[in-house]
Simulated scan of single mutants.
Amino acid sequence: MSTPLPSISGKRLRLPKTKVEQRPNLLKQDFSTTGLNQKWTADMTYIQTKRNGWCYLSTIMDLHSRRITGYSFSKKMDTDLVLKTLESAVKNRTITGELIIHTDLGSQYTSDDYNQRLTELYIRHSYSRKGCPYDNAPMESFHASLKKECVYPVPVFEDYETAAAVLFEYVHAFYNKKRIHSSLGYQTPLQVEIATLTSQMAA
């Protein structure tokens, strides 16, 4: 018998339905870029463990390089998780007022705390339409690859610590540095970032 997915709590973070659905979709499925730190996409996914139940992986991707620039793993799916991911993404990046981050309408991303931090960082917030995963297709693709290549072969991690170690290795050592993408001309995300930064320095 399959284990049911956990329900999302966080009722205190939810906004009225009409207000949530009015959030702007700035990206409109245009994932094209001309450089780094122009368009980011963010999302969370469930990771099951035997001892600790469901845990949650939160990531941010730069759409220019497809590199995972923000990363956080937790036993709780709350606003602190996505805020921690955001801080890890901006830590070593140069942010300007041109940056857009795209998320779904989850209560963590529509929370006042998250959007206040985006305002402080001069990052514009774009939202997927309700029930439209294609609005966040690059992140959906990343999660599909991660589940196929890293999670499903296990098939269930023993505990939170084991999952954290394996996921960290997959994202930082394999996906960012070794996994080639046809959309990147069969380069890795790290190769694209290095080439982009080298080109900017030479200009």
Rank of each mutant, 00 (worst) to 15 (best):
G185E: 04
Y46C: 14
D62R: 00
A202I: 05
K28C: 13
I194N: 05
S107F: 02
S128A: 15
L13D: 12
H172L: 14
L36M: 08
K39W: 00
G97Q: 05
T59V: 14
A144P: 08
N37Y: 01
I194C: 06
L26V: 02
G185R: 14
S74H: 03
N52R: 07
G53K: 11
Y56D: 07
S7D: 09
P153H: 07
L190Y: 06
R51V: 02
N176D: 04
L81H: 06
Y160A: 08
L26F: 01
S72G: 04
I95H: 02
S107G: 04
T96R: 02
D62C: 04
T79L: 09
P153F: 10
S58D: 02
L5M: 15
R12S: 14
V166A: 07
M201Y: 12
P24N: 09
Q38M: 05
Q116F: 05
K130W: 02
F31T: 00
S183R: 08
D43W: 00
A137F: 05
M44L: 13
R117G: 09
Y134T: 12
Y170H: 05
K178L: 10
Y175G: 08
T3D: 07
R14T: 02
S183L: 06
P155W: 06
T188R: 04
D80I: 05
S74L: 05
Q48W: 15
V192R: 05
K76G: 04
D78Y: 08
T79Y: 05
A89H: 01
R124Y: 00
L63H: 00
P4C: 09
S9C: 10
L27W: 00
S141Q: 14
P138H: 03
V156N: 03
K50W: 03
L167N: 15
F73E: 07
I101G: 08
M139F: 01
E120N: 14
K76S: 11
S7K: 11
T3A: 15
I95V: 11
H172Q: 15
C55M: 13
V82P: 01
S65A: 03
S126V: 06
T79V: 15
I8H: 13
T188A: 12
Q116I: 07
R14Y: 11
L15H: 12
P24L: 03
A202Q: 11
S182G: 05
F31L: 01
G70C: 10
Y186W: 14
R67G: 09
T188H: 09
R12H: 14
I101F: 04
S107T: 04
Q29I: 05
H102W: 03
Q29V: 08
K76F: 01
V156L: 08
A144H: 10
G53H: 13
Y127N: 10
R66K: 06
K50I: 08
F142C: 03
P153S: 11
G53F: 07
T162R: 02
E120Q: 15
K28E: 14
D78G: 03
D135I: 01
G70E: 12
I180R: 10
M77G: 03
L13W: 04
C55S: 13
G97R: 07
R93Q: 15
E149M: 11
Y46V: 15
L99M: 06
H143G: 04
T33Y: 00
S111C: 11
P155M: 07
Y122W: 04
F174A: 03
P138R: 06
E87N: 13
A89F: 00
Y71I: 06
S183Y: 00
E158W: 01
A89P: 02
Y134A: 13
K75E: 12
